[in-house]
């Protein structure tokens, strides 16, 4: 499957997740919800990968990077939820956080040697501006 189709699938299911998360946040705190979602996802994927006999052998550096990414992930959610809870408008932290799309695109081109044409970079900027304005104007 190509990356565009995979991204569009992710976009649609991200929308479904958002609707369900809105329901969940009325029933439980965001930090407890995150623990359940991440924990159950981990258990489900471990079982699936066992069935599919996926190999977990990897270079030490990859293990270190992914461990760091996981721990960073917990910090991202816990700290962002805290910021949302104290901000005068919940849209502000989410809008600032959305800047990660543009920065990640630049980091990818600078440090991972991936491609980035000027026209596509303009596309990223336009779409990110749309996302941020949509959040702030909500």
């Amino acid at each position: 499957m190509n990356w565009i189709l995979l991204s569009l699938i992710a976009m649609f299911f991200n929308f479904v997740v958002f609707i369900l998360i809105r329901k969940l946040t009325k029933r439980m705190s965001s930090s407890v919800m995150s623990l359940y979602l991440f924990g159950i996802s981990a258990i489900y994927l471990i079982i699936t990968n066992l069935i599919l006999e996926e190999s977990y052998s990897m270079p030490k550096i990859a293990f270190l990077l992914l461990t760091t990414a996981g721990l960073a992930g917990s910090i991202v959610y816990l700290v962002l939820y805290k910021a949302i809870s104290i901000a005068p408008n919940i849209g502000y932290p989410v809008a600032v956080f959305s800047l990660h799309i543009v920065i990640t695109t630049i980091i990818s081109a600078l440090f991972l040697g991936t491609s980035l044409t000027l026209i596509k970079f303009i596309g990223v900027i336009i779409a990110a501006a749309g996302i941020i304005s949509l959040i702030l104007w909500k």
Binding site: I46, L71, G73, S74, I75
Partner: peptide, 15 residues
């Protein structure tokens, strides 16, 4: 998928 397992496991541990 293996990277995602690692991510979810260690993010859960942090939480």
């Amino acid at each position: 998928s293996v990277a995602l397992v690692m991510y979810f496991v260690f993010a859960s541990l942090g939480m």
